[in-house]
Nucleic acid binder design. Sequence first.
DNA 1: ACTAGGCGGGG
DNA 2: GTGTACGCCTAGT
Length: 803
Amino acid sequence: MPGSGATLVSFQLLDVSYEMRGSTSVIILWGRGADGSRIVIFYSEFRPYFYVLPDGSVGLDQLTAMIRRLSKPSSPIISVERVRRRFIGREVEALKVTTMVPASVREYREAVRRLGGVGDVLEADIPFALRFIIDFNLYPMRWYVAEARETAVPHGYSVDKAYVLSGSIREDESRVQEDPLKGLRVLAFDIEVYSKMRTPDPKKDPVIMIGLQQAGGEVEILEAEDRSDRRVITGFVERVREADPDIIVGYNQNRFDWPYLVERARVLGVKLTVGRRNVEPQPGLYGHYSVSGRLNVDLLDFAEELHEVKVKTLEEVADYLGVVKTEERVTLEWWQIGEYWDDPSKREILRRYLRDDVRSTMGLAEKFLPFGAQLSQVSGLPLDQVMAASVGFRLEWRLIREAAKLGELVPNRVERGEGRYAGAIVLRPKPGVHENIAVLDFASMYPNIMVKYNVGPDTLVRPGEEYSEDEVYIAPEVGHKFRKTPPGFFKKILERFLSWRRQIRGEMKKYTPDSPEYKLLDERQKAIKLLANASYGYMGWPHARWYCRECAEAVTAWGRSIIRTAIRKAGELGLEVIYGDTDSLFVKNDPEKVDRLVRFVEEELGFDIKVDKVYKRVFFTEAKKRYVGLTVDGKIDVVGFEAVRGDWSELAKETQFKVAEIVLKTGSVDEAVEYVRGIIEKLRRGQVDLRKLVIWKTLTRPPSMYEARQPHVTAALLMERAGIKVEPGAKIGYVVTKGSGPLYTRAKPYFMASKDEVDVEYYVDKQVVPAALRILQYFGVTEKRLKGGGRQSTLLDFMKRGK
DNA sequence: ACTAGGCGGGG
DNA sequence: GTGTACGCCTAGT
């Protein structure tokens, strides 16, 4: 029962931070109340602590006394307790040292390490706010009921209500199936900066426009007056505070918009207080900006995981996801922005461009946030951190929580020289075009191996340790041994993940795929799958706290053995295997034989395998991990081809994709050849837009400092001579012009070149033809044929010849 | 061939 | 804030 004056507060946990009040740390839980209010809950009883693992050379009483003697008045050591814990599977007796000021833990850690009798200092590097939600078993984005007393909202907090935690916090089970984003306010923003042909400098280049959009609303645009942007910045702060979003989204705002705005505000003497606390956005060590009381989410972090999209511009990503199609939006290059601002007749286009960027950003948020929210609920990291974190950290924070629950101490992060080990099997593909191919995928192969063979750092039999043959699993090839019992740290966690995911997938069957319930559960099972699948790679990651090279080695060895067995079986069944990679097999789509193979893998090997997709046609080169496929539903998959890269001209990239599409969809090599010839002809007739010929490269140093002569450096030097400042980091766009000398003498900044100067033959020989030949050479097409005459052939001819 | 170092996204 | 990415490409040897 709540104590005097205490009430039960139902809230959704959004974020956690802490502040010092004198020498006392106060935990701040940022949340959303069930009544729609934005709240904070304060808790000032939580204290920072860490563990000391004795090495046995000094008695525990003596060690305790030695640690106590280190206590400093600025942050006294308030207790040193003896505790029983486990560490990598062993029972240990440790000392738990508690102090007052979180920031003092670092100093105590170093001081304690220097004491005799100390084996190691553990858990002295867990951020204090995270430590709190770990120990109280709170997960961001989930709903809780807390016993708390309401208190006046302190000065400097922009929230509706404030509470002081006076009792326990428990999860509100009735809201587990609720959409965590429902009712949360999302704000998308983007800025445009005045710049002409050089990297903008916040010291002088104004922010000319800022676009904002609330979910479901229209894009609102704030504009500078000529070059004066003070009102834009103050207006932005006002608008954010009015909108009072819980989540702020942008695209690459952590590396551009926030640092630019913060610096610009400083230059103008304006305070950028956009958070729920009277502070400016704070930069973290690796570029994440934290906006107090709000979740600042950079959608580029999500885009990084779209491996299918090679160039991750907002435009490309939005187009790929069908959020805002490229052909339905205004596209401008960054170097045009100054010009479109200066020319009043073009300013409306600039507005539309910004509006399209903001719309794209909001669209991406709608696509990505549901998954992010689930990942937050599952991993235990606040939404803004979970997306910025690499997959290893996401899993690791969940592992730390599991360790806390199991009484396991968390190993330290240690510097390790990376050791390479044998990876998965990748078969050499059979080059050429294959028709009707089924792709078989093992479901969560590696996690299942880890569970089946109890793989983990705590079950590994290390050199010199006793074991008997029938008590261990022995990995093929590498011979690493793992104890069959008791179940290890990873096995316990993975079993829970796998059964949790099974249960969710069962529940999903109750709903139709387009229902909100189904989508929520689907995002949740994907989040769990992500963490489960990360566990193998995690053990082989040199930064991992639970690093275990032998474990990772053993997992891939088992994986290789399983896939080899499956390939052998396919051979026995007379099923042709075209290609295989790690946990997938490309086989002829002979349903009856495929079905027998699937049953063999499930029944004899004990692993799940299923037909993931069927290609109507798929084209392999002789290279591994590189193919183009046409799925039965008409989608083109381009995997591993590198012409989708930034330093090729737009024209070359376009040509390569088109060629792949034509070859697979129509089956006509001739049509593809004709297409390429058409492009070459257009190029020679001067009908290709100069913009598609620009090759971009980044300067890594001042142009005069280069020893080697390169085209983009020549272009940069020309820009300097024209009075345009170019600094390291600037992207130089150049075109190759006619002339006789070596290439680097013929490069010119694209805006200084005219179409008729362009060395068309360079683009034919070094851009269009090589990009097209990457694919077409496998059909016997030669450079000569693309550029001149040649005989007609069809895909059918090629396939006959190939046999 | 190999390693060291820098970039991505943004404007 | 008890603290931080990563995989690919280029330049240079």
